[in-house]
């Protein structure tokens, strides 16, 4: 893909020579596309960097975009689409800003009727297509990262371990229990038992609307693990439907204490702790 000197101008040389007007034009097109949501100064800074990374590989047709000579360009594009995602731009807008360069370069070489130049332009077009797709891929990856972060935060948020009395912990579970969540609950509860030196823990499942065999299995494991560490677990707040499911599934709770409400469970735990709660006569 080299062009004989004198016969025709090389696309790379052409782009390097007219870099300034090209970038200006490009920024103009993209700024119009984004309707002022990104300032020209920002775009210009980004595109200048992009252009500089692009120039050395203009001769390529984009088929070997995984190669080492593309490292800079890939890193830039990934960072660019990452910042675009966070700023709330659609993937189409991000990809279009790459594709826009195509039109600007086509305009530049419109007057040329040299077949060599045409071939180079075709290759360049392929390269930009590949780069545009790369921004799309980065977009999807960043989105997935965000989703994963959020679901992790959700896990942390929805499983508080609270101390309700000296030596008594409570874990109110709300929402759907899946294996990942029960795992988190189990670990947090056991660690809290050690930290606070509590001998009783109440697992309240009033807010849980479905229990399957696997979830029950995890609950049982938690109770047994707590027992191994020297603490007793009480399960409270089993809904009527869930009680039916548990019996229908044939899940055995064995000698694990279950109570109807959190209040009953707390009373039971306090009694085991040797605490007596009495109503005062002054009313």
């Amino acid at each position: 893909m080299t062009v004989d000197a004198g016969r025709a101008q090389n696309l790379t040389d052409l782009m390097r020579d007219s870099a300034e007007p090209l970038i200006d034009e490009w920024v103009g097109v993209v700024a119009a596309l984004l309707r002022g949501r990104s300032t020209k100064t920002e775009l210009e800074a980004d595109f200048r960097e992009f252009f500089a990374a692009l120039l050395p590989v203009v001769g390529s047709d984009g088929k070997d975009i995984g190669g080492p000579e593309f490292t800079d360009l890939r890193a830039f594009l990934e960072e660019y689409s990452r910042s675009r995602v966070r700023a709330g731009f659609t993937p189409t807008e991000t990809a279009s800003s790459v594709f826009s360069l195509k039109r600007v370069v086509f305009d530049l070489t419109e007057s040329s009727d040299d077949p060599q130049m045409f071939r180079q332009l075709m290759a360049f077009s392929g390269l930009l297509d590949a780069l545009g797709l790369l921004t799309f891929e980065s977009f999807a990856r960043v989105r997935e990262e965000i989703i994963r972060e959020q679901s992790e935060q959700l896990l942390e948020l929805t499983t508080p371990v609270v101390k309700v009395w000296e030596g008594v912990l409570a874990v109110p579970l709300v929402g759907t229990l899946d294996s990942a969540r029960t795992q988190v609950v189990m670990e947090k509860l056991l660690e809290a038992l050690v930290e606070t030196g509590s001998e009783h823990a109440i697992i309240d499942i009033t807010g849980v609307f479905a229990v399957d065999t696997q979830v029950a299995q995890h609950l049982l494991k938690t109770v047994v693990a707590a027992r191994l560490m020297g603490a007793e677990c009480i399960v409270s707040g089993i809904r009527p439907q869930i009680a039916q499911t548990i019996v229908a599934l044939g899940i055995e709770f064995g000698d694990i204490v279950t109570k109807a409400s959190l209040a009953d469970a707390l009373r039971h735990a306090l009694r085991r702790e040797g605490v007596d709660v009495v109503r005062s006569e002054i009313a």
Partner: peptide, 26 residues
């Protein structure tokens, strides 16, 4: 048996060892 760590307890449960007949304390 005293002072079992959470990770150890979880491992024993996963192994199916419930230490029947052994008392435990925090």
């Amino acid at each position: 048996v005293v002072g079992m760590r959470p990770a150890v307890a979880i491992t024993l449960v996963e192994l199916g060892l419930t230490l029947g007949g052994v008392r435990t304390a925090l």
